[in-house]
Design a binder for these strands. Structure first.
Length: 104
DNA sequence: GCATTGACTCTAG
DNA sequence: CCTAGAGCCAATG
């Protein structure tokens, strides 16, 4: 049984403290390199789930989140800053420095 | 089963 | 650096 949703949750839970990954990386990790959008869809759908969703950003190293009533860009920025991850006021992140690569 | 949406990514200009 | 267009996937109505 491979629920896409569940697979995404597991992948995100593998992200260590102080590291970030892109939606595309997760998609690749799920053997669906083109499912980056679907990954974002899942994260958006997850609300009360215990998951470090803030460690997931786009491949441009920037926060793509629009901002729903539960999660906002400022929220994500605050979470990242709490993990020693530098985030510019423009929500720009040095993903090249903090990027986490999933184990093969 | 088609049309729409969304926290994506890439290429071009 | 920013915008626009196209491609892609999963869930929803």
């Amino acid at each position: 049984m491979n629920n896409f949703k569940e697979s995404v949750i597991i992948a995100v839970n593998q992200i260590p403290y102080g590291k970030v990954v892109s939606y595309g990386q997760i998609a690749v990790h799920l053997d669906n390199p083109r499912a980056a959008r679907a990954v974002g869809w899942v994260l958006r759908s997850l609300e009360g789930v215990d998951l470090p969703w803030w460690r997931v950003i786009n491949n441009s190293g920037r926060i793509s989140i629009k901002g729903n009533r539960f999660n906002t860009p400022e929220d994500q920025k605050r979470h990242l800053l709490a993990e020693n991850i530098h985030v510019a006021d423009n929500f720009d992140i040095d993903i090249n420095k903090y990027r986490y690569l999933f184990p093969v």
